[in-house]
Write a protein that binds this DNA or RNA. Structure first.
Lengths: 354, 354
DNA sequence: CCCGGCGCTGACAACGTTGTCCAGGGGCTA
DNA sequence: TAGCCCCTGGACAACGTTGTCAGCGCCGGG
């Protein structure tokens, strides 16, 4: 289309809007071969300084930028990894996402991410879209419980690491926090401060971490020889209304709980609100799973089981890139420890029994 | 390589690890032409139900998944947009990022994002990497002040919308919050409650929003006929140490400020901590720019200038896709309003003068 | 002076998909 | 029964890049 004969005076090659110059255009303008341009663009050796200069000039003049789609097609590797999580807006996932990004960056890879909104179908849709893009690897915080759909992809070489929750019905690497241990510690802590009737408000029971935390709760109670009433356990969505209802019911029962263990971030925040509205005369002890900003500035400060979400992401991404670098071996399951941070709310004693 | 003759009994085609089946393989297995497979995969009309079934079977049997790199190369559109922000881990950007993602999803596009860490060079590096990937559009929260490097890309058809801060040295769409107006409101609010010596602790002066907020501060002060001491204004990085030092200096001066206006989220949080450590006898009024979770549960609740970061992201993404759908016209600058939410900390009176 | 080798360059195929175009067959109409 | 059109299917080129390989000078040694 454009006249590329060397003699022609075409200082400003008129290009259609949306059409970008290619290596061919650069080559024509610089009066060199296609491959030479490729060599310059990729910093390969074997190009005379003078030739390189000519090519560079043509690149700048035309505003050429390599088309990575073509490059990827040719090379087979995309230098990008996918991250599928539940909700980017959740403060728990921000640092995790950022940590994965940093590791990716250190390996020269880009990060493509998406939110599953805790919907298994959407998770699958996203994951497969990423596979179609031929991401080199995947970090997944799973929403569903059946990941057999991933088997062909993994067999085809897509490295995959699950985070926060394990994969369902397939064998895959996973990096988890010690939900069970953390929860047992939390409840044991409340028991040590004299509580006997302890409520647990958690996430949907289908979510692995929620189930593990419930298990930790039961373990601590039974280790202390304490019974657990059905009414003391409430699992469900973490929207404020549900949590508010559950908490109120436990606190206003005939035999009210004297302490609450909140199964995650969002539950804790809602419980804090509920407690703030109640008479301060009868304070209720509270421990939350997950740390959150300003937890120490509330009065009382909120005692939490902290898990380092950035560390979780970093560990997962590291493992992913080790796999990509060829590390073999069976799928591994890494469990990161949690840490109880006492701040006051978890150390409140139960009210004196009448 | 693999024997694809129809008669051969190859139920499990042995493929090299990392080699994926292509449409050619599917076509051979189904005994149809290449293009027919393409038609089935893309749901194009003109395929007999029987043929379609055969193709589908071959696809499942081989575990075929379309290679989007090749597709993109051929079609020219990537159905993906890039988002460059400062730090994914910052709670201000989580909802923004999520909102952009939702809009992208509604348009069938994927989101590739990266953090600039407030480093102009890294911003440029990221943006250009995204351009090389041929993203259809870009949403940028700029770190630098010179975006001329983007001109060739935009000329080549990459739609670009700046958010939170305008572009530098080029003309481009931008979606901003009303930093100036919000800040003026905040400071006027403090003045209305009797304050005369008001401190401002903000972000680096090079950041557009920081400069605008400072301007709002000055406007409110001068509209009230109040002088501004140099010692009352401190701009700089938002790390806790710097902010702590600045706040302490203003509060412990010979003529201490009686109220503080914090220029953003992170500054506010640090200031809250500083104030919490001081004697409660002489409370200091505080208004922060940006709302944050639990601001209402602190005592006193923290009065803030709220900007809806999700709305910011949604608006920007909407504008981006309108541009991608062909909406022309000059670059637009949209300014979203802010809202003062009184919660107590901004309504504290100054201590009685002796 | 000739030959081997090395440093530089370019022609060409291939990556996997989609758009264009054409062929063959079957059904419908005149 | 001839003619036409539509429906289905396939061959082929093109997208922009990179890997392979071959060619062309030029230099140094024999």
């Amino acid at each position: 289309m454009t006249d590329t004969a060397p003699g022609t005076a075409s200082r400003t090659p008129t290009r259609r809007y949306g059409t970008r110059p290619t290596m061919k255009d650069v080559a024509a303008r610089a009066g060199v071969g296609l491959k030479t341009v490729s060599r310059v663009v990729n910093g390969e050796p074997g190009v005379t300084p003078d030739t390189e200069r000519r090519v560079q000039e043509a690149i700048t003049a035309l505003g050429f930028r390599r088309n990575d789609s073509a490059r990827i097609l040719r090379k087979g590797r995309t230098a990008s990894i996918g991250l599928v999580l539940e909700d980017l807006a959740d403060p728990f996932y921000g640092p995790l996402s950022r940590a994965v990004e940093e590791v990716a960056r250190a390996h020269g890879a880009l990060l493509i991410n998406g939110s599953s909104a805790e919907d298994p179908e959407r998770e699958q849709e996203l994951v497969l879209a990423l596979c179609a893009r031929r991401v080199d690897g995947l970090v997944i915080i799973p929403a569903g419980h059946d990941h057999r759909y991933l088997a062909p992809e993994m067999a085809a070489g897509v490295a995959t690491v699950f985070v926060d929750r394990p994969a369902g019905r397939i064998d895959a690497d996973a990096v988890l926090a010690d939900s069970f241990g953390g929860s047992r510690d939390a409840v044991a802590h409340l028991i040590a401060h004299g509580h006997r009737r302890i409520g647990f408000i958690g996430d949907l029971p289908g979510i692995h971490t929620a189930a593990e935390r419930l298990r930790g709760y039961h373990a601590a109670m039974s280790e202390a020889g304490l019974p657990v009433h059905d009414a003391w356990v409430s699992l469900g969505p973490t929207d404020p209304e549900r949590v508010r209802t559950a908490a109120t019911a436990m606190l206003d029962a005939a035999e009210p709980v004297t302490a609450l263990f909140a199964g995650n971030n969002r539950v804790t925040v809602t419980v804090v609100r509920v407690l703030a509205e109640r008479p301060p005369a009868a304070p209720v002890a509270l421990i939350g799973f997950d740390d959150f900003e300003l937890a120490d500035l509330l009065s009382p400060g909120i005692t939490v089981i902290a898990q380092d979400s950035a560390q979780l992401g970093r560990t997962a991404a590291d493992l992913l890139f080790r796999r990509l670098d060829g590390a073999g071996g069976d799928p591994r399951r890494l469990v990161l420890p949690t840490r109880l941070i006492p701040r006051g709310s978890g150390e409140l004693p139960p009210p004196a029994t009448p």
